[in-house]
Amino acid sequence: MNTHATGPGLRSVTLMILTLAIAALALPLHAAERGPVTGLPLPRYVSLKASEGNVRRGPSLSHRIDWVYNRRGVPLQVTAEYGHWRRVRDRDGAGGWMHYTLLSGVRMVLVQEDMLALRRLPTPDATILARTEAGVIARLGKCKPDWCRISADGYKGWVPKTALWGVDPDEIRE
């Protein structure tokens, strides 16, 4: 008696499984991840809506406060959801749980480069409209593959995407 299955049927099944495995590897990891509460992508960027926000060790009021953000608009990355709570991390990788009412979907970015030139057009030789210091929080506008338009303190301009925290390297915004 032959205990090994062979023939065209097994080859078809094997080929189908192999094709599905290869297709799964081709998907970006973040494309399949959605928050179980909101259905929004994970990770994603948000900003601090309030002028002050407690960061807790766990997703409830009974968990200890590890620290407090005290800068309205600071960009944060949501990495998990649990009920009314969002696990966030900041530019330095520090993280914790915040109540969703403290967060906004308004996209803000943190300037990481000192004396960053805001340019009229998204090119390195375009006219400089203003300069901004490292640590400035700016509102994120359009993003092309390598440039984003930001606004801060009444100034608007294009900056290299690599000079910002709060936007993904492959992110395009209209």
Rank of each mutant, 00 (worst) to 15 (best):
R44E: 00
V55K: 04
W158M: 10
P8K: 14
V136I: 10
M108G: 04
M108H: 09
V106T: 13
D90Y: 00
L110M: 09
A26K: 00
P36S: 09
T132L: 06
P160D: 05
H4L: 13
T79N: 02
A31S: 12
L164H: 00
G93L: 01
D153L: 13
Y69F: 10
Y155H: 06
V55L: 03
L110P: 07
V46R: 04
P36F: 04
D146L: 14
W85A: 06
W158A: 04
L25C: 02
I128F: 02
V111H: 02
T14R: 09
D146A: 15
P28F: 00
V46Q: 11
W67E: 09
R57M: 14
A152Q: 09
A126F: 08
V68K: 12
H4I: 07
G73D: 11
R91E: 14
I17L: 13
R107V: 02
V13F: 10
A5D: 08
V55R: 00
R72K: 12
L20D: 05
P43C: 11
L18I: 05
K144S: 06
W147P: 01
L18K: 04
R89W: 12
L42T: 01
R44L: 03
E52T: 10
G58A: 11
L76Q: 05
R87P: 00
D168C: 05
R149F: 02
V46D: 01
A32N: 13
K49Y: 03
P75S: 03
G35A: 08
R44Q: 07
V13W: 14
T6F: 15
W67P: 04
A117Q: 11
Y100N: 15
R64V: 09
H99T: 06
P59R: 07
R91V: 15
R71V: 14
L61A: 13
D146S: 12
A80F: 08
K144T: 15
V74Q: 11
L61T: 11
R119F: 14
E113W: 11
V78N: 04
H63G: 05
G7K: 14
G157R: 11
W147V: 03
V88C: 03
N70M: 11
L116W: 08
L103F: 11
A21W: 06
R57Q: 13
D146R: 10
M108A: 09
R120T: 06
G73M: 10
T19A: 11
R56G: 00
E33D: 13
R34G: 02
S12K: 11
H30R: 12
L102H: 07
T6E: 07
A130T: 13
Y155M: 02
S62I: 01
V68L: 15
G105Q: 09
R64T: 15
G141C: 12
A80P: 01
R34F: 07
L118Y: 01
P169M: 07
T14M: 14
E174C: 03
D125A: 13
W85Q: 09
G7F: 12
A26D: 01
P160T: 08
V109S: 03
V74A: 06
S12Q: 13
R56Y: 01
D168P: 02
A163G: 01
R120M: 12
E133Y: 07
I137N: 03
C148A: 08
L102P: 00
H30K: 12
T101Q: 11
G83C: 11
P124E: 14
D114V: 10
S151D: 11
W158G: 04
K49A: 13
D170N: 06
T79R: 08
K161S: 05
V74L: 13
